[in-house]
Design a protein around this nucleic acid. Structure first.
Length: 553
DNA sequence: TTGCAGTCAATATC
DNA sequence: GATATTGACTGCAA
């Protein structure tokens, strides 16, 4: 139990007592392989003293220092990390120093990728230079990650993007050579980095690699060399293959799957990729607004109505939830940087502003644009739009909604996000119990109708939100409201309370929220609401296990 | 069993 | 051709 608690809710180093730090030291040592597998001398035993003494040694490493590079530049200088919970600027330095050495080939210790089939030139080239790890005694990437101080993921990606574009280096090359990831993953990572504290050890790895790469004075050169070699190899292959076969269309130039691997018998076995039609996505989004966590039954219904495989629907929900979450992270960061209040705990936040890509665009954009909101616009213009596709997908969602409640807000806009919880779904676990509607079903009044004017929408949403908070609703709602407020902060994430608070406010239409943010808020709010939904859902679920009725705050 | 994080890899878009 | 998007999959944790 203690372990579970510690692993899921570790306290910041600075808040730990000597004793409290001990388990972390042990973990660190264990991660470093300095504690034999298995038996760890317990407490006061022989190792006790060792641990105690190590405590001081490791201090800097363990501490989460802050993104040194975020603002300034390369970590090297690591200015005093102000907001870092624990100031030690050294931590960063230690890592960067650690990292500054020549890099051995990417040792995919555990990375699934075997010998990087991709490494095109790898074969004939110098050691791909991924990790600056020193000799074998060197720390493995995992160890580095474990010991790494808090990095400013945002700042790192920003710099990486700059370097790559400035030098005309592609994501694919960078990803395969430096990170051991595919182009798509790199793109995603660079465009939507998660804040350090939300990353798992594995998720931190690419950032540590990037940091290491950034610290490598020859990083660009090495990559350029790789590029050249790739090109050369490509040309060579081309020449030779001109005559003979193969559609070596392997996108990645140097990859030779061709060889050892079975040629391409598989080609036929591949299942075609499912591509959801816009209407289907719409319907799913709507369903999501209603219930971010649909019950199996609901999923099945959706699948049936949309004529999709249930696994597709399930996957879609998983992906959508997680992607929305990610966008929220970014928004948080941005918001933080803008409101500069943000700076608080997440270093990433600092660099936020710099946010290159994510700007309004993609994040919100995505949803906003294609999401319900967009639809709205559409619909507003052509009322019947919704009707499109005969009773297609759109209806599917609608149907679901209907079941839930009556008036279903035409998808969209803010109101929906609140996603009127479907009370009906009795089957929906958590949900049913406590309707997690972040937002109350829009009052009979505004919500339901297709919000004709997008501009107006926000307002409506707000109202709804506000009302949600109001006692009026059923007990459930009230409860929720309460829960929400209390819950949010706890959400596992340590994001700046201030920020969070403000988002909450805006979410619920608290005073300032209303006018404060501009248009851009809508989508934002929607997402947040949706996110709240899931949070609430989980909270309720958890609560239900224990004291179903009790929790009111 | 369920949900999530992290990825891959096929497509879409620029 | 490079980058962005996204459905699916894997592994892990609760």
């Amino acid at each position: 139990g203690s372990v579970s608690d510690m692993l899921s809710r570790p306290k910041p180093w600075s808040k730990l007592t000597q004793k409290g730090r001990e388990p972390f030291i042990r973990m660190q040592l264990w991660l470093n392989g300095e504690l034999g597998q298995g038996v760890l001398p317990v407490q006061g035993q022989q190792q006790g003293p060792v641990i105690q003494s190590v405590m001081s040694l490791h201090d800097p490493l363990l501490q989460g220092s802050v993104s040194s590079e975020s603002t300034p530049k390369t970590s090297a200088s690591c200015s005093p990390a102000p907001e870092s919970p624990m100031s030690s600027s050294e931590s960063v330095k230690s890592l960067t120093e650690l990292v500054q050495q020549p890099c051995p080939p990417i040792e995919t210790s555990k990375e699934g990728k075997p010998p990087e089939p991709s490494e095109p030139p790898a074969s004939d080239s110098q050691p791909t230079t991924p990790l600056p790890l020193s000799g074998h005694s060197a720390l493995s990437i995992q160890e580095l990650v474990a010991m790494s101080p808090e990095l400013d993921t945002y700042g790192i990606t920003k710099r990486v993007k700059e370097v790559l574009t400035d030098n005309n280096l592609g994501q694919r090359l960078f990803g395969e050579t430096i990170l051991g990831l595919t182009q798509g993953s790199v793109s995603d990572l660079l465009a939507r980095p998660k804040p350090w504290h939300k990353l798992s050890l594995k998720g931190r790895e690419p950032f540590v690699r990037m940091q290491l790469w950034l610290n490598d004075p020859n990083n660009v050169e090495k990559l350029m060399d790789m590029k050249r070699m790739e090109k050369k190899a490509y040309m060579k292959r081309r020449h030779s293959s001109v005559s003979d076969s193969q559609p070596c269309e392997s996108p990645s130039v140097g990859i030779d799957y061709s060889q050892g691997a079975s040629p391409q018998p598989q080609h036929q076995l591949k299942k075609p990729r499912v591509v959801l039609a816009p209407e289907e996505k719409e319907a799913l989004k709507r369903a999501y607004q209603q219930k971010p966590y649909p019950s199996p039954k609901t999923i099945e219904e959706l699948a049936t109505q949309l004529n999709l495989k249930t696994s597709t629907v399930i996957n879609w929900f998983h992906n959508y939830r997680s992607r929305i979450r990610r966008e929220l992270f970014i928004e948080e960061i941005q918001a933080g940087s803008q409101g500069q209040t943000g700076a608080s705990d997440s270093p990433s936040a600092r660099s936020g502003r710099a946010v290159p890509s994510s700007e309004g665009d993609s994040c919100d954009g995505v949803e906003a644009a294609e999401g319900p909101g967009a639809v709205d616009a559409e619909e507003s213009s052509s009322p019947t739009a919704a009707t499109k596709s005969q009773g297609g997908p759109a209806e599917a969602a609608a149907a679901l909604e209907e079941r839930e409640e009556a008036p279903r807000p035409p998808e969209k806009a803010e109101p929906p996000l609140s996603g009127t919880p479907a009370p009906d779904d009795a089957d929906d676990e958590g949900q049913s119990r406590a309707p997690p509607p972040p937002l109350p079903p829009d009052g009979p009044a505004d919500g339901p109708g297709p919000v004709p004017n997008p501009a107006a929408a926000p307002a409506a949403g707000e109202d709804a939100a506000t009302s949600a908070a109001s006692p009026a609703e059923g007990p459930g709602q009230a409860r929720e409201g309460a829960v929400r407020s209390s819950a949010l902060p706890s959400t596992s994430a340590p994001p700046p309370c201030a920020r969070r608070a403000s988002s909450l406010q805006s979410l619920f239409g608290l005073p300032e929220a209303a006018g404060a943010r501009d248009s851009r808020d809508n989508p934002l709010r929607k997402k947040k609401a949706a996110n709240l939904n899931s949070i609430i859902h989980r909270l309720e679920k958890a609560a239900s296990r224990e004291e179903p009725i009790e929790w009111e705050f």
